[in-house]
Simulated assay, not measured.
Amino acid sequence: MLQPVEQLAARRFPGDSIVRGNKSEQTVQAGNAVSCNVAQWLGSRVAAVLWNGALRRTQESAAEGIPPGRRHRQPPR
């Protein structure tokens, strides 16, 4: 069986990563970890979608002559 340090290395964690707990707890933590490069890729994809959505809404608002921050109608009182 792989040691916790080896499991983390397989998931591309830096060699100086600190994992606390006994060996069993470290194994659980390493087993539940998301690979650093996968987390970075996922985060960059989410950021791109959020950025592009915000940019598109800004462009649509400008095309419609709506001032920034006033995209959504106010509910009736």
Rank of each mutant, 00 (worst) to 15 (best):
V49Q: 06
N52E: 15
G15H: 00
F13M: 06
P4W: 09
W41E: 14
L55F: 08
S35V: 00
M1N: 03
L42S: 09
M1V: 04
T58I: 07
E64Y: 05
L55G: 00
R45Y: 03
W41N: 05
P67N: 08
P68E: 09
A30S: 01
R71V: 11
K23H: 04
A47C: 00
L55M: 09
V46Y: 09
G69Y: 12
S44A: 14
R11S: 15
R20Q: 10
L8E: 13
A54N: 05
V5C: 09
R73M: 11
V19Y: 09
R73Y: 08
A62P: 00
R20T: 12
A33F: 01
V49P: 00
L50N: 14
G21H: 01
D16C: 08
V49A: 07
N22V: 05
A39T: 03
I18K: 13
A10K: 08
V46D: 07
A63S: 04
R73T: 10
A62W: 04
I66A: 08
Q7I: 10
R77M: 04
W41P: 00
S61E: 15
Q74N: 12
L2M: 02
P76K: 01
R70Y: 12
W51I: 07
Q29R: 08
W51L: 10
L42D: 11
Q59S: 09
A9K: 14
Q40G: 00
G53K: 05
P4M: 09
Q74S: 14
S44W: 10
S17N: 05
A63V: 02
T27C: 01
W41T: 00
Q3F: 10
N37R: 11
G31Y: 04
E25P: 01
N37A: 12
A47I: 01
W41I: 02
C36Y: 04
W51Y: 06
A48P: 00
G65S: 01
A63G: 04
Q40K: 12
A62F: 07
A62I: 02
S17R: 13
A54Y: 07
G21L: 06
N32Y: 12
S44L: 14
A10P: 03
R73S: 12
A30P: 03
L42A: 15
S24Y: 04
V28C: 01
R70M: 10
I66R: 15
C36A: 07
S61Q: 14
V49I: 06
H72I: 08
H72M: 06
Q26H: 04
V46T: 03
G43V: 12
S61C: 15
Q3L: 15
N32P: 00
V34M: 09
P75Q: 12
Q26E: 07
P67V: 03
R45F: 06
D16M: 10
L55E: 14
D16L: 11
N22I: 06
R11C: 15
V5Q: 15
